[in-house]
Design a protein around this nucleic acid. Structure first.
Lengths: 265, 265
DNA sequence: CGCCGTACCGTACGTCATACGGAGTTGGCG
DNA sequence: CGCCAACTCCGTATGACGTACGGTACGGCG
């Protein structure tokens, strides 16, 4: 059942695009566009109206060129998305691991990713496939993240998994918040409106007898905060978990630096 | 900039669909289809060929009806996706919190979600918006998950965040694995093929001097395992983190957790 | 100077969700 | 019983989308 898809999905071409290796042509008319200009236009559209509004036509129109001209610079939309992802990842400066304890460094990584997703909500939708592709910024970020846990006595596999854990958490928690907003934007209804309109129905459907704990939590108002209100809280717990691992690997750390911190606002 | 989208996104209608409240018509021809049959067909298509292959046409064809007939039972594709999500969530039995310590119960929840995503890879793409909608299975699952941490001395907000933490982790870690497979399927290239074909280029681009830690980890072979190989490992750390919180709230847990606490409620 | 590789892009194709309206069907009421 | 409003089914059409194809005009190199 393998669908051939003509000449698509060429790793060499895609990597050349991501790393900007690839010589321009020597013959023919001057190039009127650059990959960078195309990517910038695409990012602007995605930021403004969501990734659903990002079409090749829209990008071309914003640049004042014909739609098909884009295909001179970019093999297709999928590759454009990959380059967009890698480009935007380069916006946030990587924390300098040197001089930072692992916990602070990892924390900064997590917060940077979270902040990035606020600025460019569409990145969460590309996060998975983007990682696979290994553009220069993704690579730099992966290296930097791994460096934060490099000298703690962990095996390489453990390092990978620890970083993967933080990434997974940030991705997951961010997604909820972003998706809610995206739904609100694309449906034109708005989170508050939608919620207000559904509450009467939900209150009839979700009876305390069937869902006792949920209703208790609901009554306490916990569902009225922003969906990722617990970001810092959960991040703290994740890092606590990692701390138990690291302590178990380094059996006698001269002084335990921080008790389990509970000063969560 | 509010786009009106005619009569779309009606919470009352969507909730009625999810909870199956809503009387059938009394007049007119007999109904030849049911929402359940439509949902089942749609799930089969999504399981077999990915959510990208799920079109209203495809569903109708599989049922042997005209495309537009579906719109008699379902307001649109978005709502169909919501019902699909809520339906498959009901497949995995909820762990019975009574008699289980919180850690085991939460663990089972996490593993059930993870297993669900293996069976129906497309759920990870709906996870965010699905939660917002509060169908019966989503509601039951939320209640059950909250119950696992109900009697541990946590505030309601903390309960929400603890459950949200586990959910976020599972979602994030699962997504990577699923997305990789999805890319492989839809591009027709295959994970191994793609990787094999890109490796020569990547080895030229990713130089040890620029990315020392990444290359070290790479050389150790950590990138050759399945992308979610660290699932259990990371889950353990997450639960460890939660454990530090719970211990800090219950300052003196007299003995081992095997001690049976008075069954609340 | 002239050739040919290249940039630009108009047009076209196949796909999608779904709006609209007509034809056929049925149950409840008069 | 007979009628008609309410309903199901669905053919057709619209406007999006990604992108294949081929024509035209340009410009560096032989």
């Amino acid at each position: 059942m393998a669908r051939e898809k003509s000449g698509r999905a060429d790793p060499a071409r895609t990597l050349a695009l991501l790393w900007r290796t690839g010589e321009g042509p020597t013959r023919g008319p001057k190039q009127g566009l650059t990959v960078d200009r195309i990517v910038r236009a695409a990012v602007e559209i995605a930021d403004a109206d969501g990734i659903g509004a990002l079409s090749m036509r829209a990008v071309a129109e914003r640049l004042g060129v014909g739609t098909m001209s884009l295909y001179t610079y970019v093999p297709g939309k999928a590759e454009l998305l990959h380059v967009m992802f890698d480009t935007v990842l380069g916006e946030s400066a990587l924390p300098d691991a040197a001089g930072l304890d692992w916990r602070t460094a990892l924390e900064r990584h997590a917060r940077a990713d979270h902040a990035l997703a606020q600025r460019h909500p569409w990145v969460v939708q590309l996060w998975g496939p983007g990682l696979l592709l290994m553009g220069p910024r993704v690579t730099a970020r992966a290296d930097s993240a791994l460096r934060t846990v490099a000298d703690l006595g962990l095996t390489e596999a453990e390092m990978t998994h620890v970083v993967g854990l933080v990434d997974a958490y940030v991705r997951g928690i961010t997604q909820v918040a972003v998706d809610v907003n995206r739904d609100a934007v694309t449906s034109g209804v708005g989170y508050e409106d939608w919620w207000a309109e559904s509450t009467p129905y939900l209150e009839r459907l979700i009876q305390p007898a069937r869902f006792p704990t949920l209703t208790r939590v609901w009554a306490a108002g916990s569902y009225e905060e922003a969906p990722d209100a617990g970001f810092e809280f959960g991040l703290g717990l994740v890092l606590d978990g990692i701390e138990t691992l690291i302590r178990s690997r380094r059996p006698a750390p001269a002084v335990a630096p921080a008790q389990s911190p509970a000063p969560q606002e």
